[in-house]
Design a protein around this nucleic acid. Sequence first.
DNA 1: CGTTTAATCAACCATATAGTTGATCAAACA
DNA 2: TGTTTGATCAACTATATGGTTGATTAAACG
Lengths: 133, 133
Amino acid sequence: MIVDPSADDRLDRAFMALADPVRRRIIARLSRGPATVNELAEPFEITKQAVSKHIQVLEHAGLVTRTRDAQRRPVHLDAAGLEALTAWIDRYRLIHEQQFRNLDALLATDRGTNAAASDAGPTAGPEPEEPRS
Amino acid sequence: MIVDPSADDRLDRAFMALADPVRRRIIARLSRGPATVNELAEPFEITKQAVSKHIQVLEHAGLVTRTRDAQRRPVHLDAAGLEALTAWIDRYRLIHEQQFRNLDALLATDRGTNAAASDAGPTAGPEPEEPRS
DNA sequence: CGTTTAATCAACCATATAGTTGATCAAACA
DNA sequence: TGTTTGATCAACTATATGGTTGATTAAACG
Protein backbone atom coordinates (compact mmCIF):
# COMPACT_ATOMS: atom_id res chain seq x y z
CA MET A 1 0.00 0.00 0.00
CA ILE A 2 1.52 3.26 -1.16
CA VAL A 3 1.24 6.25 1.19
CA ASP A 4 3.37 8.68 -0.80
CA PRO A 5 1.19 11.51 -2.08
CA SER A 6 4.16 13.26 -3.70
CA ALA A 7 3.14 15.99 -6.10
CA ASP A 8 4.47 13.94 -9.00
CA ASP A 9 2.50 10.85 -8.06
CA ARG A 10 -0.68 12.86 -7.71
CA LEU A 11 -0.20 14.31 -11.19
CA ASP A 12 0.59 10.83 -12.54
CA ARG A 13 -2.63 9.46 -11.19
CA ALA A 14 -4.74 12.43 -12.23
CA PHE A 15 -3.54 12.50 -15.84
CA MET A 16 -3.77 8.72 -16.05
CA ALA A 17 -7.27 8.85 -14.66
CA LEU A 18 -8.40 11.16 -17.45
CA ALA A 19 -6.68 9.06 -20.12
CA ASP A 20 -9.78 6.87 -20.37
CA PRO A 21 -12.98 7.85 -22.18
CA VAL A 22 -15.18 6.11 -19.62
CA ARG A 23 -13.65 8.06 -16.77
CA ARG A 24 -13.86 11.31 -18.72
CA ARG A 25 -17.57 10.69 -19.30
CA ILE A 26 -17.97 10.04 -15.58
CA ILE A 27 -16.31 13.39 -14.84
CA ALA A 28 -18.57 15.06 -17.40
CA ARG A 29 -21.60 13.57 -15.68
CA LEU A 30 -20.40 14.56 -12.23
CA SER A 31 -19.83 18.14 -13.33
CA ARG A 32 -23.62 18.42 -13.26
CA GLY A 33 -23.92 17.09 -9.72
CA PRO A 34 -23.24 14.01 -7.55
CA ALA A 35 -24.38 10.53 -8.60
CA THR A 36 -24.36 6.96 -7.30
CA VAL A 37 -22.36 4.13 -8.82
CA ASN A 38 -25.50 2.63 -10.34
CA GLU A 39 -26.45 5.91 -11.94
CA LEU A 40 -22.96 6.37 -13.29
CA ALA A 41 -22.82 2.82 -14.63
CA GLU A 42 -26.15 3.05 -16.43
CA PRO A 43 -24.96 4.58 -19.76
CA PHE A 44 -22.12 2.05 -20.16
CA GLU A 45 -22.04 -1.47 -21.54
CA ILE A 46 -19.57 -2.66 -18.91
CA THR A 47 -20.37 -4.22 -15.53
CA LYS A 48 -21.04 -2.23 -12.38
CA GLN A 49 -17.85 -3.64 -10.89
CA ALA A 50 -15.80 -2.17 -13.71
CA VAL A 51 -17.40 1.25 -13.15
CA SER A 52 -16.73 0.91 -9.43
CA LYS A 53 -13.06 0.39 -10.24
CA HIS A 54 -13.04 3.44 -12.49
CA ILE A 55 -14.44 5.50 -9.64
CA GLN A 56 -11.74 4.20 -7.32
CA VAL A 57 -9.16 5.32 -9.84
CA LEU A 58 -10.71 8.80 -9.98
CA GLU A 59 -10.89 8.94 -6.19
CA HIS A 60 -7.29 7.83 -5.77
CA ALA A 61 -6.34 10.57 -8.23
CA GLY A 62 -8.05 13.19 -6.10
CA LEU A 63 -10.60 14.05 -8.78
CA VAL A 64 -13.71 12.82 -6.94
CA THR A 65 -14.76 12.09 -3.37
CA ARG A 66 -17.31 9.67 -1.96
CA THR A 67 -19.72 10.28 0.88
CA ARG A 68 -22.19 7.98 2.61
CA ASP A 69 -25.97 8.00 2.41
CA ALA A 70 -27.36 4.76 3.88
CA GLN A 71 -26.28 1.96 1.54
CA ARG A 72 -25.63 4.46 -1.23
CA ARG A 73 -22.18 6.04 -1.78
CA PRO A 74 -22.69 9.20 -3.83
CA VAL A 75 -19.70 10.38 -5.85
CA HIS A 76 -18.86 14.09 -6.02
CA LEU A 77 -16.56 15.95 -8.36
CA ASP A 78 -13.51 17.55 -6.75
CA ALA A 79 -12.86 20.64 -8.84
CA ALA A 80 -9.62 21.38 -6.99
CA GLY A 81 -8.09 18.21 -8.43
CA LEU A 82 -9.00 19.28 -11.93
CA GLU A 83 -7.58 22.71 -11.33
CA ALA A 84 -4.20 21.26 -10.35
CA LEU A 85 -4.01 19.73 -13.81
CA THR A 86 -4.80 22.91 -15.72
CA ALA A 87 -2.28 24.68 -13.50
CA TRP A 88 0.45 22.25 -14.53
CA ILE A 89 -0.36 22.40 -18.24
CA ASP A 90 -0.80 26.16 -18.34
CA ARG A 91 2.52 26.75 -16.61
CA TYR A 92 4.53 25.20 -19.44
CA ARG A 93 2.21 26.36 -22.16
CA LEU A 94 2.66 29.94 -20.99
CA ILE A 95 6.42 29.63 -20.62
CA HIS A 96 6.48 28.39 -24.20
CA GLU A 97 4.45 31.35 -25.41
CA GLN A 98 6.67 33.73 -23.48
CA GLN A 99 9.67 32.26 -25.30
CA PHE A 100 8.02 33.03 -28.60
CA ARG A 101 7.35 36.59 -27.52
CA ASN A 102 11.02 36.88 -26.56
CA LEU A 103 12.03 35.57 -29.99
CA ASP A 104 9.71 38.03 -31.70
CA ALA A 105 11.24 40.88 -29.75
CA LEU A 106 14.74 39.66 -30.66
CA LEU A 107 13.92 39.47 -34.35
CA ALA A 108 12.31 42.92 -34.23
CA THR A 109 15.43 44.67 -32.91
CA ASP A 110 18.25 42.43 -34.19
CA ARG A 111 17.35 41.76 -37.88
CA GLY A 112 18.15 38.01 -38.32
CA THR A 113 21.87 38.64 -37.68
CA ASN A 114 22.85 34.97 -37.03
CA ALA A 115 21.41 31.70 -35.69
CA ALA A 116 17.95 31.76 -34.05
CA ALA A 117 16.44 31.86 -37.54
CA SER A 118 17.50 28.27 -38.36
CA ASP A 119 15.91 25.83 -35.90
CA ALA A 120 17.19 26.92 -32.53
CA GLY A 121 13.68 28.21 -31.98
CA PRO A 122 12.88 30.38 -28.97
CA THR A 123 15.78 31.44 -26.78
CA ALA A 124 17.13 28.43 -24.91
CA GLY A 125 18.75 30.52 -22.17
CA PRO A 126 19.98 29.23 -18.78
CA GLU A 127 18.06 26.59 -16.79
CA PRO A 128 14.82 27.53 -15.04
CA GLU A 129 14.00 23.75 -15.33
CA GLU A 130 11.13 23.44 -12.78
CA PRO A 131 9.45 26.78 -12.07
CA ARG A 132 8.07 25.35 -8.81
CA SER A 133 5.00 27.12 -7.46
CA MET B 1 -1.72 0.84 -37.61
CA ILE B 2 -4.45 3.08 -36.28
CA VAL B 3 -5.60 5.93 -38.51
CA ASP B 4 -8.53 7.13 -36.42
CA PRO B 5 -7.71 10.51 -34.91
CA SER B 6 -11.13 10.76 -33.26
CA ALA B 7 -11.34 13.52 -30.69
CA ASP B 8 -11.66 10.94 -27.93
CA ASP B 9 -8.57 9.03 -29.02
CA ARG B 10 -6.56 12.22 -29.23
CA LEU B 11 -7.56 13.11 -25.67
CA ASP B 12 -6.80 9.56 -24.52
CA ARG B 13 -3.30 9.76 -25.90
CA ALA B 14 -2.64 13.28 -24.67
CA PHE B 15 -3.70 12.63 -21.09
CA MET B 16 -1.91 9.29 -21.08
CA ALA B 17 1.22 10.96 -22.41
CA LEU B 18 1.29 13.37 -19.49
CA ALA B 19 0.66 10.59 -16.95
CA ASP B 20 4.39 9.88 -16.78
CA PRO B 21 6.90 12.03 -14.88
CA VAL B 22 9.61 11.50 -17.49
CA ARG B 23 7.36 12.80 -20.26
CA ARG B 24 6.23 15.72 -18.13
CA ARG B 25 9.85 16.68 -17.52
CA ILE B 26 10.44 16.47 -21.27
CA ILE B 27 7.53 18.84 -21.84
CA ALA B 28 8.91 21.16 -19.16
CA ARG B 29 12.27 21.19 -20.90
CA LEU B 30 10.72 21.77 -24.33
CA SER B 31 8.70 24.71 -23.03
CA ARG B 32 12.04 26.56 -23.02
CA GLY B 33 12.85 25.68 -26.63
CA PRO B 34 13.49 22.71 -28.97
CA ALA B 35 15.99 19.99 -28.10
CA THR B 36 17.44 16.82 -29.60
CA VAL B 37 16.82 13.33 -28.26
CA ASN B 38 20.32 13.19 -26.77
CA GLU B 39 19.82 16.48 -24.99
CA LEU B 40 16.46 15.35 -23.67
CA ALA B 41 17.86 11.99 -22.54
CA GLU B 42 20.82 13.49 -20.67
CA PRO B 43 19.09 14.20 -17.29
CA PHE B 44 17.59 10.70 -17.07
CA GLU B 45 18.99 7.40 -15.88
CA ILE B 46 17.23 5.44 -18.59
CA THR B 47 18.56 4.55 -22.04
CA LYS B 48 18.31 6.80 -25.07
CA GLN B 49 16.00 4.27 -26.68
CA ALA B 50 13.55 4.59 -23.82
CA VAL B 51 13.57 8.38 -24.18
CA SER B 52 13.07 8.00 -27.91
CA LYS B 53 9.96 5.95 -27.20
CA HIS B 54 8.69 8.59 -24.79
CA ILE B 55 9.08 11.19 -27.50
CA GLN B 56 7.15 9.01 -29.93
CA VAL B 57 4.35 8.81 -27.38
CA LEU B 58 4.30 12.60 -27.03
CA GLU B 59 4.39 13.02 -30.81
CA HIS B 60 1.57 10.53 -31.35
CA ALA B 61 -0.42 12.48 -28.75
CA GLY B 62 0.02 15.68 -30.71
CA LEU B 63 2.00 17.39 -27.95
CA VAL B 64 5.33 17.67 -29.80
CA THR B 65 6.58 17.67 -33.39
CA ARG B 66 9.90 16.63 -34.89
CA THR B 67 11.81 18.35 -37.66
CA ARG B 68 15.03 17.42 -39.45
CA ASP B 69 18.45 19.02 -39.17
CA ALA B 70 21.08 16.76 -40.80
CA GLN B 71 21.26 13.62 -38.63
CA ARG B 72 19.63 15.43 -35.76
CA ARG B 73 15.84 15.41 -35.18
CA PRO B 74 14.99 18.35 -32.94
CA VAL B 75 11.81 18.05 -30.93
CA HIS B 76 9.47 21.04 -30.57
CA LEU B 77 6.61 21.62 -28.16
CA ASP B 78 3.15 21.89 -29.74
CA ALA B 79 1.28 24.29 -27.50
CA ALA B 80 -2.00 23.71 -29.34
CA GLY B 81 -2.02 20.13 -28.09
CA LEU B 82 -1.62 21.29 -24.52
CA GLU B 83 -4.36 23.83 -24.95
CA ALA B 84 -6.82 21.15 -26.07
CA LEU B 85 -6.32 19.48 -22.69
CA THR B 86 -6.91 22.59 -20.61
CA ALA B 87 -9.96 23.25 -22.73
CA TRP B 88 -11.41 19.85 -21.88
CA ILE B 89 -10.68 20.12 -18.17
CA ASP B 90 -11.87 23.71 -17.85
CA ARG B 91 -15.15 22.92 -19.56
CA TYR B 92 -16.28 20.54 -16.83
CA ARG B 93 -14.59 22.39 -14.02
CA LEU B 94 -16.50 25.52 -14.98
CA ILE B 95 -19.82 23.72 -15.41
CA HIS B 96 -19.31 22.36 -11.91
CA GLU B 97 -18.63 25.82 -10.50
CA GLN B 98 -21.67 27.18 -12.30
CA GLN B 99 -23.77 24.50 -10.60
CA PHE B 100 -22.52 25.69 -7.24
CA ARG B 101 -23.37 29.27 -8.11
CA ASN B 102 -26.86 28.09 -9.04
CA LEU B 103 -27.17 26.28 -5.72
CA ASP B 104 -26.00 29.34 -3.85
CA ALA B 105 -28.61 31.44 -5.63
CA LEU B 106 -31.26 28.85 -4.79
CA LEU B 107 -30.36 28.79 -1.13
CA ALA B 108 -30.30 32.59 -1.02
CA THR B 109 -33.90 32.97 -2.25
CA ASP B 110 -35.50 29.71 -1.13
CA ARG B 111 -34.35 29.25 2.52
CA GLY B 112 -33.54 25.46 2.75
CA THR B 113 -37.19 24.57 2.12
CA ASN B 114 -36.64 20.88 1.30
CA ALA B 115 -34.01 18.54 -0.24
CA ALA B 116 -30.92 20.13 -1.85
CA ALA B 117 -29.47 20.62 1.62
CA SER B 118 -28.92 16.87 2.22
CA ASP B 119 -26.57 15.40 -0.38
CA ALA B 120 -28.27 16.06 -3.68
CA GLY B 121 -25.58 18.70 -4.19
CA PRO B 122 -25.81 21.21 -7.01
CA THR B 123 -28.92 21.13 -9.18
CA ALA B 124 -28.97 17.94 -11.24
CA GLY B 125 -31.27 19.37 -13.92
CA PRO B 126 -31.87 17.89 -17.39
CA GLU B 127 -29.10 16.43 -19.54
CA PRO B 128 -26.54 18.73 -21.16
CA GLU B 129 -24.24 15.60 -21.14
CA GLU B 130 -21.57 16.65 -23.68
CA PRO B 131 -21.44 20.41 -24.20
CA ARG B 132 -19.67 19.90 -27.54
CA SER B 133 -17.62 22.83 -28.81
C1' DC C 1 35.74 4.46 -48.68
C1' DG C 2 35.66 3.56 -43.28
C1' DT C 3 34.26 5.60 -38.91
C1' DT C 4 31.89 8.36 -35.79
C1' DT C 5 27.49 10.42 -34.31
C1' DA C 6 22.32 10.65 -33.86
C1' DA C 7 18.55 8.14 -33.64
C1' DT C 8 15.42 4.35 -34.59
C1' DC C 9 13.97 -0.62 -35.17
C1' DA C 10 13.23 -5.27 -33.25
C1' DA C 11 12.68 -8.67 -29.89
C1' DC C 12 11.96 -9.55 -25.44
C1' DC C 13 10.59 -9.20 -20.20
C1' DA C 14 8.10 -7.46 -16.12
C1' DT C 15 4.43 -5.09 -14.43
C1' DA C 16 0.06 -2.52 -14.60
C1' DT C 17 -4.51 -1.87 -16.46
C1' DA C 18 -9.39 -2.90 -17.95
C1' DG C 19 -12.42 -6.18 -18.10
C1' DT C 20 -14.83 -10.46 -16.59
C1' DT C 21 -17.48 -13.77 -13.10
C1' DG C 22 -18.70 -15.13 -8.50
C1' DA C 23 -18.78 -14.27 -3.58
C1' DT C 24 -19.31 -11.05 0.22
C1' DC C 25 -20.69 -7.00 3.07
C1' DA C 26 -23.98 -3.68 4.93
C1' DA C 27 -28.02 -1.06 5.30
C1' DA C 28 -33.23 -0.97 4.47
C1' DC C 29 -37.45 -3.23 4.54
C1' DA C 30 -41.14 -6.71 5.25
C1' DT D 1 -35.19 -12.70 11.08
C1' DG D 2 -34.90 -13.12 5.94
C1' DT D 3 -34.66 -10.76 1.64
C1' DT D 4 -33.75 -7.09 -1.42
C1' DT D 5 -30.71 -3.36 -2.87
C1' DG D 6 -26.23 -0.94 -3.53
C1' DA D 7 -21.68 -1.56 -3.80
C1' DT D 8 -17.23 -3.75 -3.00
C1' DC D 9 -13.83 -7.69 -2.70
C1' DA D 10 -11.26 -11.55 -4.83
C1' DA D 11 -9.36 -14.15 -8.39
C1' DC D 12 -8.41 -14.53 -12.98
C1' DT D 13 -7.44 -13.21 -18.18
C1' DA D 14 -5.81 -10.30 -21.97
C1' DT D 15 -3.58 -6.53 -23.47
C1' DA D 16 -0.70 -2.38 -23.10
C1' DT D 17 3.22 -0.01 -21.19
C1' DG D 18 8.06 1.02 -19.83
C1' DG D 19 12.21 -0.74 -19.68
C1' DT D 20 16.20 -3.46 -21.43
C1' DT D 21 19.94 -5.15 -25.06
C1' DG D 22 21.52 -5.67 -29.74
C1' DA D 23 21.24 -4.59 -34.62
C1' DT D 24 20.31 -1.14 -38.21
C1' DT D 25 19.71 3.28 -40.81
C1' DA D 26 21.50 7.73 -42.20
C1' DA D 27 24.15 11.72 -42.38
C1' DA D 28 28.85 13.95 -41.43
C1' DC D 29 33.79 13.62 -41.19
C1' DG D 30 38.57 12.09 -42.18
